[in-house]
């Protein structure tokens, strides 16, 4: 019973950490819009945290470039396991219109493993919330398989 409560808790309490990895702020604004009374993601137990040691889900917006790749990797490494990564927007998924730029490495998945991709320029808040739900479904599958 205690074990099943712990597994339920992991799905019901996703704490998000949002990292702007060089976004134009379009996707950032849409991500923060999820926390407003209109969308109220706290209904699902979501809290926006500023500390990777407390985070379960890393939400990344923007492209990865030569300078911030180390920071992104550092943040990811500081998060406790199990953890999810969500790449938001065209830039986060693939580098978007900046993918050919000389300093740009590409999407988030060039540096850390990504669980869910959210397309869009910018991505809609509904799509971002759906990505969290899909990611938690994936986590639930992993937890069930580890029985």
């Amino acid at each position: 019973m205690f074990g099943s409560f712990l597994k339920t808790s992991q799905v019901k309490s996703p704490w998000l950490m949002h990292f702007d990895c060089g976004s134009c702020n379009g996707c950032d604004i849409e991500t923060l819009a999820c926390l407003t009374p209109v969308y109220d993601v706290e209904r699902f137990g979501v809290i926006n945290v500023g500390n990777p040691r407390h985070a379960d889900v890393l939400v990344v917006t923007g492209t990865v470039n030569q300078r911030n790749a180390v920071i992104l990797k550092n943040i990811y490494d500081q998060m406790p396991t199990p953890k999810l990564v969500i790449a938001i927007g065209a830039c986060g998924c693939s580098g978007g219109v900046f993918r050919e730029a000389p300093n740009v490495l590409g999407g988030i998945d060039k540096v850390i493993p990504v669980d869910v991709y959210v397309p869009g320029c910018p991505a809609k808040p509904e799509a971002i919330m759906d990505a969290v739900v899909v990611g938690l479904g994936k986590l639930k599958g992993i937890l069930e398989a580890s029985k």
Binding site: F5, L6, K7, T8, S9, Q10, K12, S13, W15, P37, D40, E42, R43, F44, G45, R53, D56, M79, P80, T81, P82
Partner: peptide
Amino acid sequence: ARLQSRLGPPLLQPFYDVGKLWSKVIAPA
């Protein structure tokens, strides 16, 4: 949450949070 015109989390959310934190694996600082 209600004071901020939001629905807010379930009443037992703090217990889920603690359950989640309990099952996390991380090296202490």
